[in-house]
């Protein structure tokens, strides 16, 4: 006697899980009534199906989070019990100039990415949307290709392209008597090169997200606005942007949350965090604490701080999604 599948509630919006599935949270009463027993025995099959997945999530996602908090409060000792050091690791990390540089850079990565990862793809998507289907499809596919390449390959391509001696860019500009500076060894420019490279990789993907949103806009609205004498810019500003606002918000918040994780690979391959910490970020620094300074406590404390920061971002995301970024 399984309840009908369509009664089981629809898919909750990301982050909206607290509202739905209401009944399923209720625990059975302690008195083992016949009903309770029946419910538990009915749970045997689904529990067996779920067990492998849930155990793995527990062991490799939730347990590590708890362990991480523990590790952030101790100094590991390979020959004896770990020493409790209270907030020492946190104090150490916060006063560490490398970590401060990394935190500032992370904000540069986040805000510096918005024009290329959020705004440019919006413009590109609108242009593709207004093109002939054939040409639009060609562009859509070409722009999508970097999504399928690994970041290792992408980073090496751009190291080579931007090489001041033999890179493609130097070859292109040398007939004009121009010399390409070494952008990756310059403290001012290196971080922007990495922002550019990581944008190059995701533009096509974000364009796809926008195109999915655009496909829902009816042409009646556009025609109505045309009859009122609206020009392209007005239609974009007054109709397309408001109707796309949920997608724009989604792309923006994903950019904010993912950029600092995503740039790990280009940082590691293109600059190693340098020159002079100019390109390092918080994820890269906690990696280096572990594998270069062998400091487990710092690595753990730094990661907990990142976790709190990301949690804060996700809370904003949920709060805004609950409010619904919508025009209706």
């Amino acid at each position: 006697m399984t309840p009908p599948a369509h009664d089981l509630g629809t898919m909750p919006a990301p982050g909206a899980l607290s509202r739905s599935n209401g009944g399923a949270f209720a625990l059975p009463s302690l008195r083992p009534s016949a009903v309770t027993l029946a419910r538990w025995s009915r749970a045997a099959t689904p529990m067996a199906f779920l067990a492998p997945f849930i155990i793995l999530v527990g062991v490799f996602t939730y347990w590590p989070l708890i362990d991480l908090v523990y590790l952030s409060f101790v100094r590991m000792n390979p020959f004896g019990p770990d020493a409790f050091v209270a907030m020492d690791n946190y104090a150490g990390v916060i006063s560490n100039t490398q970590f401060r540089d990394a935190a500032v850079n992370s904000l540069i990565y986040i805000f510096g990415s918005i024009p290329l990862k959020v705004v440019l793809p919006l413009a590109v998507a609108v242009f593709i949307w207004t093109m002939s289907a054939r040409l639009g499809n060609v562009y859509r596919s070409v722009l999508f290709v970097p999504t399928l390449l690994s970041f290792v390959v992408v980073a090496i391509i751009w190291i080579w392209m931007l090489n001041p001696v033999m890179g493609l860019l130097q070859t292109v500009i040398s007939p004009f008597g121009l010399r390409l500076p070494n952008l990756l060894s310059n403290r001012e420019t290196a971080i922007h090169v990495i922002i550019f490279v990581s944008s190059w990789k995701v533009i096509g993907f974000n364009v796809l997200l926008y195109l999915a949103g655009l496909s829902a806009i009816g042409k009646d609205y556009i025609e109505a606005m045309r009859l009122d004498g609206a020009n392209d810019w007005t239609i974009f500003r007054k109709l397309i942007v408001p109707l796309l606002s949920p997608t724009i918000f989604f792309v923006a918040i994903s950019t904010v949350v993912f950029t600092i994780q995503q740039v790990f690979t280009p940082i590691d391959i293109m600059t190693g965090g340098g020159p002079l910490n100019a390109t390092t970020n918080i994820f890269y620094i906690v990696y280096q604490y572990l594998f270069e300074s062998f400091n487990v406590g710092y690595s753990a404390a730094g990661t907990v701080l990142i976790f709190l920061f990301l949690g804060f971002l996700v809370a904003i995301k949920i709060a805004v999604l609950e409010k619904r970024v919508h025009y209706h």
Binding site: L17, G23, A24, F25, A26, R39, M47, L65, F264, L310
Partner: peptide, 26 residues
């Protein structure tokens, strides 16, 4: 339909938001 379904599903959804780079050390 089984007891704890909502809680377990929430655990799965929550795990989606935790990247490897947060748990790599442990």
């Amino acid at each position: 339909q089984f007891p704890g379904r909502g809680l377990l599903f929430a655990l799965v959804l929550g795990a989606m938001m935790i990247p490897h780079q947060l748990t790599f050390l442990p």
